[in-house]
Amino acid sequence: MRIKEGFELRDICGEHVVVAHGRGNIDFSKIISLNESAAYLWHKVQGQDFDAAMLARLLTEEYEVDEATALRDAEKTMQDWRGAGMAE
C-alpha cells in the first residue's frame, strides 16, 4: 500500500488533519482527522510502499504495545486510509 499523491498531513488547531491538496488548491471540504499514532505512521511511511507488518513494527518501536495488538491496529489503520481514499 502507498499513500496517494495529493494528500498531506497538516497540524490544524492542534489536530492532525489530512487535506487533499491538488491542482493548486487545498480542499477543506474533505478533511480527515488522524489520531496521534496514525499521524506518526503517516509521517513514517509517506512516499514509500508499506504493509501491515511494517506499520505494526513502527508501532511497537514507538509505543508500548504487543505485536498482536500492533498488527490489529496497523490493519485497521490501513483499512481506514483505504476507505477514505487516501491510500491504495
Binding site: G24, N25, I26, D27, F28
Partner: peptide, 10 residues
C-alpha cells in the same frame, strides 16, 4: 488565500 492558495470549502 492571503498566502496565494486556492481553497475549497463546503
Amino acid at each position: 488565500v492571503a498566502e496565494g492558495e486556492h481553497v475549497i470549502i463546503s
